[in-house]
């Protein structure tokens, strides 16, 4: 049993490294996209915010697995050359789109949680709407966004397990390969995989809870 741990650990760690890579790229791209969507939804007009609301509902209403299959299998069927995605970009793009819906809701809730008096006071000192958003509202809203972003990061980490089905050798896939080499130690290998996920997610969850006590948090619409 100790042998098996010794032999499979490097495989699993290589898988964990890919999981980390995907989740880091995704949190960056997904947050940026989500930030833009959330901001546009707050400050944009009726047409913009309805369209973006539909975008969020469409992505929230379908499983991530379906997004992944649509981006990996359906987009190439359009025949457009730049939509023929490899597995890795397909995984990162679909996860980022999925993440952006969560981030957009957080951004909107945080901006709306900043008291109206703040932006009114800023406007009355002669700031433009943009200035008041940039110098007064956003700095306060950003703090409120930090704790729920920890939760989103954990959702991404767990979401990366699903991209194993399009053949990316991340942690779950590495675990599957290892079970094929040592079928008798299946329980042990899946247990190790689960432990590695735990080791990655648990500190993030703790950090998020610490941030929540420090900065306070926003209540998200469910």
């Amino acid at each position: 049993m100790v042998d098996v741990i010794w032999v499979t650990m490097p495989f699993l760690l290589a898988g964990l490294w890919i999981t980390i890579k995907i989740s880091l790229i995704t949190i960056l791209c997904g947050s940026l996209l989500g930030f833009v969507v959330g901001m546009l939804r707050t400050v944009g007009g009726w047409a913009v915010s309805t369209t973006l609301g539909l975008y969020i509902h469409a992505l929230r209403g379908t499983p991530f697995l379906v997004h992944l299959y649509i981006i990996y299998f359906v987009l190439p069927a359009t025949g457009i050359s730049w939509l023929q995605l490899e597995a890795f970009p397909a995984a990162v793009i679909s996860l980022s789109l999925y993440t952006s819906t969560y981030v957009a809701e957080i951004v909107r809730a945080a901006i709306e949680a900043v008291p109206r008096g703040q932006s009114e006071a800023a406007r009355s000192t002669g700031m433009t709407a943009l200035q008041s958003m940039w110098y007064v509202v956003l700095p306060q809203a950003l703090k409120l966004m930090i704790p729920p972003m920890g939760g989103v990061y954990v959702i991404i980490i767990k979401g990366t397990s699903i991209v194993s089905v399009i053949g990316i050798a991340e942690l779950v896939r590495a675990g599957e390969h290892a079970t094929q080499r040592h079928p008798k130690e299946l329980m042990l290998i899946y247990g190790m995989t689960a432990l590695l996920y735990f080791a990655y997610c648990y500190p993030v969850l703790r950090l998020a809870r610490w941030a929540e006590t420090k900065f306070g948090s926003v209540r998200l619409p469910s």
Partner: peptide, 19 residues
């Protein structure tokens, strides 16, 4: 609660079904 929240559902399904 902690164990479930910090592992992916796919792994939980595999563990319960296969193991």
């Amino acid at each position: 609660v902690q164990a479930i929240r910090s592992t992916p559902l796919l792994i939980q399904i595999y563990v319960i079904y296969f193991s």
